[in-house]
Amino acid sequence: MDYQNILSVIKENILYLTINRPEKLNALNKATLAELADAIAIANNTPEILAVLLTGAGEKAFVAGADISEFSSFGSSEGEALAREGQEKVFNAIENSSKPFLAAVNGFALGGGLELAMACHIRVVSSFAKLGLPEVTLGLIPGYGGTQRLTQLVGKGRAFEMIATADMITAERAVEIGLANHAVPAGDLLTKAEEILTKIKQRAPLAIASAIKATNAVHHDQASGLELEINEFGKCFDTADFKEGVAAFLQKRKAVFTGK
């Protein structure tokens, strides 16, 4: 696919995805979501890619929401289809990817933008970022997993307050309540993101994929999540990376993982 709304570059085994609509504060329209879905599928199917860094172009916004003009005339069936397709092809696809996704939030992350960041496995925010779910001001609720993921991250009471008041919170508050992993000065945002992903990409890729699957399962049912963890733990023993990791530990050297 020839991308018009996102930039895609692979550097040192990290796929850098940048939503590139700064004149629209990187708002998510149908075309942008389709391009993201394509890029996510490529990341999952490209062994060279070990992690994904997702950010927005410009200094003002990560993603300032969805493109309201595209759905202003929708009825209930069209609205449901919009949410279902977006969740399946982009937001759930990110959360369930075998590759770790890190959102580098460089400004406003509102509505669908915050939902996009929450779908990622790690969130690093610039110190001047503002985060919120303002959908109720439009007579809507979050439709791309926001009600579920925000509750999982910060708890029911805080999530409902953010959704029902539509208030934005600061980067510092986001870290305080567990919505973001780190808040850093704007100039250090990509450096911090790369620092984290550089550590992750040195680890065993198949083990990382298993860890993603197991940590995601905790949100559904603890009993089944524990069973899944046991199964994924067992699978790791059959990988070449496990053999290499143990050998490197015993030989007091750095492991060289191959993702096999």
Rank of each mutant, 00 (worst) to 15 (best):
Q148G: 11
I196S: 04
A109F: 10
A186N: 03
I169H: 02
D38Q: 06
I68G: 01
G86D: 05
S69V: 02
G132Q: 05
E161V: 14
Q148L: 07
E115Q: 15
L102N: 05
E12P: 06
F71G: 13
I42K: 09
D2L: 13
K201I: 15
A223Q: 04
F91P: 05
P205Y: 13
A43K: 09
A109Y: 03
F242C: 03
I19S: 12
Q152K: 15
G145C: 03
V154S: 03
L133V: 12
G245M: 04
A171L: 09
G259F: 07
T46A: 01
A204F: 06
L250T: 08
T137N: 03
L54A: 08
L133F: 05
Q251W: 00
F101A: 00
T198K: 11
K156F: 07
V52K: 09
K30W: 11
A117D: 05
C236D: 02
N20V: 12
D38W: 04
A93R: 10
P100K: 05
F62S: 12
E85D: 13
A240D: 12
G86F: 05
F91Q: 07
I122C: 07
F160V: 14
D238R: 15
I14P: 04
N92E: 02
A166S: 14
G155W: 12
A27M: 14
F71Q: 06
A39G: 00
A129T: 08
E80D: 06
E227H: 10
H182Q: 15
A186L: 02
L228G: 03
I49K: 02
Q222M: 12
L53D: 00
A61Q: 09
A34M: 08
D188E: 14
T258W: 01
E95H: 14
A119E: 02
F249I: 05
I122G: 01
V125R: 02
I49P: 03
G143E: 10
I196Y: 11
M168G: 03
N5M: 01
L54R: 03
N92A: 10
V52M: 09
K252Y: 00
E135A: 11
L190K: 05
N181G: 10
N44H: 04
G178W: 14
I68H: 01
V9Q: 15
A117K: 08
L15T: 08
L226F: 05
S8Q: 08
Y16H: 14
E48G: 06
S77Y: 05
D241T: 11
S72V: 13
Q222H: 04
I212P: 06
I163Y: 10
L153E: 07
I212F: 09
R173K: 13
F62W: 07
A34S: 15
L206W: 00
I40S: 00
F233M: 10
E195D: 14
K30M: 08
E244D: 11
G145R: 02
K156W: 02
R21M: 15
T198H: 14
D67F: 07
K199W: 04
E48K: 12
F233H: 01
E194D: 10
V63K: 02
Q251K: 10
L82H: 04
A81S: 01
A166Y: 06
A214L: 13
R149N: 06
A223T: 14
N26L: 13
D238N: 13
I122Y: 07
N96W: 06
A240C: 07
V256I: 10
V154K: 00
V125I: 09
H219A: 15
R173M: 11
